[in-house]
Design a protein around this nucleic acid. Structure first.
Lengths: 166, 166
DNA sequence: ACATTTTATAGAATAATATTCTAAATAGTT
DNA sequence: AACTATTTAGAATATTATTCTATAAAATGT
């Protein structure tokens, strides 16, 4: 397993969050465009402390990002594939090179360094099987250090959420 | 593979989106809290058409949801596991029952029906190994129809994005 | 136990933005 | 070329975010 895979300078400190912070997070999680006013009414606080708490959580990195989720099919991306990759060489430079490539491939939505037989798990989203074939043959396998690649196709989405706070 | 796994009443029609719609989506994807004004300045349109285009894409389901991403570690969730599951029985009712269970387990962030040896792939996020053990033994395996379960541990996050529009 | 410091809060004031409305312009069709 | 649809800009209004000041609560040290 390449050594430099784990992100550096990522403080793993747990933030101090009280019940009100968690309540705010829970609401923001489900709807990033909820107004401060609405939150304040729901958790029985005025707008100022809610606003300040949100800002604080943004600064501390508890809140990473506000994103908009787009329906894959509506923009003609109809195939999702889980793709396993092992590298031939596991040196630090080889790992860094692979990571660079992965970040340049927009078909790759997620990439994890994993335990077991393979080194990485990729979540790939593309138009159709032809597009995936192109990705596999002309992009992924083009990487010089590539070992084995195994594809598992997603036939149905049962659950997809981002709710970590409950 | 259970038959009822694929979501019903999901229209798979591709929406008609022009370049300006795509430009708006691209900006919203990266920041759900970007203002209409900001978007209008960046894509050289006034606020009204931008506002209308966003509303239209919301109504048509192109825009699924605005979500806030929370840092797992900051709320003390330090373990991510990819969990493979096969069911003993593959009848429709058995499949529906499994899906119901999955949706009730908040540790399960994602669940896909997949090709290959296993029936489902789960992404599980929890506090630590003890919490995962509890999930595995007391929650997942408690399901009567459970066949094999295999766990792959995530050691590092290389890439995690939601950018489908480019 | 009391005073002091710090932190959190409410309410008002201001700034910025979203949303709606009307009219003009553009593109597409017969 | 005339008509219809759709899209757009700009102004007006409504809503919301943000900042400010004063008060209240909590934590800390003596």
């Amino acid at each position: 397993m390449p050594k430099a895979i784990q992100k550096e300078n990522t403080p793993v400190a747990t933030a101090v969050l009280d019940k009100k912070d968690m309540a705010i997070l829970k609401l923001l999680q489900e709807n990033a465009r909820i107004t401060v006013k609405e939150i304040s009414e729901k958790i029985h606080l005025s707008t100022t402390p809610v606003h300040e708490r949100i800002k604080r959580m943004e600064e501390r990195g508890v809140i990473k990002q506000y994103v908009t989720l787009v329906d894959q099919n509506k923009i003609d991306l109809n195939l999702m594939v889980i793709c396993y990759v092992s590298l031939k060489e596991h040196s630090k430079t080889a790992g860094v090179k692979f990571i660079k490539t992965i970040n340049e491939l927009h078909e790759v939505i997620e990439c994890y360094s994993i335990s077991g037989e393979f080194d990485f798990m990729l979540k790939v989203v593309c138009k159709d099987m032809n597009a995936y074939y192109d990705f596999h043959v002309n992009k992924l396998s083009q990487q010089e250090n590539m070992g084995n690649v195994q594809s598992v196709f997603v036939m149905g989405i049962i659950k997809e959420t981002h709710q970590l706070v409950h």
